[in-house]
């Protein structure tokens, strides 16, 4: 290694991945429903997209992407919940990889809820 920049480059490249192992109460938690119903309707690409983007964009110090079991709204799977400390939970339904990427960009980074994908916008009777 001949310069500090080289060291910095390695550090930045690895930091996002290692940030996955942080324990912090103030994280924004992004939870993907991964029960049989979720997996069957395509939750896995949603989970991997969210997880990869958060790491690529070095957001692991603020956001953790985890999975959970059946939320109970099986017909709306894949479901993604975003829980930020001190804010009401946001539930996204019928997600796919593209929508997930949009949520990362607009909600997790931009701070604006993507209303059209949320449970609230769905016509539930």
């Amino acid at each position: 290694m001949k310069s500090l920049e080289e060291l910095k480059a390695i550090r930045e490249k690895m930091q996002g991945q290692l940030g996955l192992r942080a324990e912090d109460h103030n994280h924004i938690r992004v939870v993907v429903g991964m029960a049989t119903c979720g997996i069957a309707s395509g939750a896995r690409p949603v989970l991997t997209t969210l997880s990869n983007l958060v790491q690529e964009k070095n957001l692991t110090d603020k956001i953790s992407v985890t999975q959970t079991g059946c939320i109970g709204l099986c017909q709306y799977e894949p479901i993604v919940e975003v829980m930020a400390p001190g804010q009401p939970k946001v539930t996204y339904i019928k997600m796919n990889a593209e929508k997930a990427a949009e949520v990362v960009e607009r909600h997790l980074i931009g701070g604006h809820i993507v209303d059209e994908y949320t449970l609230n916008s769905a016509d539930i009777k």
Binding site: M1, L4, L7, I10, R11, K13, M14, Q15, L18, R21
Partner: peptide, 21 residues
């Protein structure tokens, strides 16, 4: 218990070798 001791990049990611630098 946090890093893989056999991967130098993981040590660097936690600020390793920055003190030497």
């Amino acid at each position: 218990g946090i890093i893989n001791p056999e991967i130098i990049e993981e040590y660097i990611a936690t600020g390793g070798y920055a003190a030497l630098g």
